[in-house]
Amino acid sequence: MRQVFSEDFTVSKRQLGVALVVLGAALLLAAAVLTALDGVRLAAIIGGLAGGAGVLVGLTLLPLGDRPA
C-alpha cells in the first residue's frame, strides 16, 4: 500500500485489469442479489451488463503486464 501511494507509482495494465475484474465481479454480485431480492429490474440488468463487461475487459488486460495503464 505504501508503494501505491508513493511519489512515482503508476498503475499498470495488469493492475487495471485486476481492478476491473474485481469491480465487475462486485457489480455482477450486486445485480444477482438485487434480482434475488426484488426480481428482474432495470438497474440489475444494467449493473449486470456493466459488471460483465468490466470482468471481460479486465481479463484481457491481465496479460499486458507492467506496462503503464
Binding site: V4, D8, F9, T10, V11, L16
Partner: peptide
C-alpha cells in the same frame, strides 16, 4: 489522475 499517480489523485 489515479492511474497516473494514486497519491496525487488522493
Amino acid at each position: 489522475l489515479f492511474l497516473r499517480n494514486p497519491r496525487r489523485a488522493a
